[in-house]
Design a protein around this nucleic acid. Sequence first.
DNA 1: ATGTCAAATAATATCGATATTTTTGGAGGG
DNA 2: CCCTCCAAAAATATCGATATTATTTGACAT
Lengths: 221, 221
Amino acid sequence: MDVMLDTEGKETSATHGAYRRLRDMILTGELPPGQKLKIEQLRGLLDTGASPVREALSLLTSDMLVERIDQRGFRAAPVSKCNFEEILLLRCNLEETALRASIANADRAWEDRLVLRHHHMKKASLKSAPDFEDAHKAFHMALLENAKLPLLLRYCSQLYDLNIRYRYLAAGGPSYKKRDIAAEHQQILDAALDHDADSATQHLLNHYRRTGEYLSSQMES
Amino acid sequence: MDVMLDTEGKETSATHGAYRRLRDMILTGELPPGQKLKIEQLRGLLDTGASPVREALSLLTSDMLVERIDQRGFRAAPVSKCNFEEILLLRCNLEETALRASIANADRAWEDRLVLRHHHMKKASLKSAPDFEDAHKAFHMALLENAKLPLLLRYCSQLYDLNIRYRYLAAGGPSYKKRDIAAEHQQILDAALDHDADSATQHLLNHYRRTGEYLSSQMES
DNA sequence: ATGTCAAATAATATCGATATTTTTGGAGGG
DNA sequence: CCCTCCAAAAATATCGATATTATTTGACAT
């Protein structure tokens, strides 16, 4: 029925495509917190069938970006200061564990990956904001990935996304860049390359807590 | 089409019903790790449509009980000693955080709930194994729920389920009862009621690590 | 005998349509 | 004037069917 037009050659399954697009829309606030997510409406927005949309929403439910209400459909997850503070707390806890384990397993290949990702991130900061966001997450996940704890990494990734959502909502975009975030990243990188777990975690957590305070300060509800 | 026979009056939506049943089957090992989960086959087993089955599998994916492979369908998540040890590690980390926060918020109502759940669990241990399992989880979650950190509680619940799966797989059922698990629960309860966070976490983690060692010892792959 | 390619088969992913449930809107009674 | 109840409308949940994609089987050439 649909002619497979691979002109863009990006996504494989319609479900996965819908998942990615919806996730982006919720993270960036294009679909605001608490908004009712009607299948028909989304079906139009993503021009795909109802089944992929439904399945994408189901998947987003487990990422805690979408809530399911009885048999009354779905809505974008609400936000609250409480929720934000819990995310911050868990992130600090889990990322410390992951980073320490990552450094404990440190080897040359990992260090190379780190340097590479950091370089990509610096390059991307000159380009578009979405590119920087992707590279930024890639760098942070690279810091943790050497722990070789897939479940932990998954949780960290989820919490990262939940956190970034608050950044978008608070600033309508990455306006937090005013702080010298590049220096903070450099400190974390250097400490990790030195295998100095204490210093690296200290810098990492300060990095998170500082953005946390900034965002927390401009939240009302 | 389907006559709504609420004779059992249990489940509301077909999707949720399928989710619960599949989850149980995977946790208990009725659907063994790594097994291909074909839609048609499950559709027959649960006698429902393909859509609810698909959606249930999607949900189980995020509970890490089911894996999705490209566009080649689903399979029950594999198991490994590595995976088990990660679950144990994360559980110890997260439950310690949750229990300490729970105790910090301690109030009379919570203590009452704890005592009640503990009582229910003791009563249920005389009845059927599934009843005990439910009560056992309810008790453990009650220990943590007063932290009032919903995300954390959710992770703990997920990890609890992943862990219980290994228990079923190792013993074909709760044969681990040989150890005096009742005494361990009593110690945890008493410490929690005393608001002694250090003692409570110590007992809780020992509780987990002891079962962990037992299970780890009889795992080959 | 073996490796490769192509047709047949099976299973998934997706669509369109239907039945069920929830919500809305309005009429009648208190 | 407000509350309750019933009918109409909308939206969801589910089903059956189709098209797409992966897997297997068998034939042919090497």
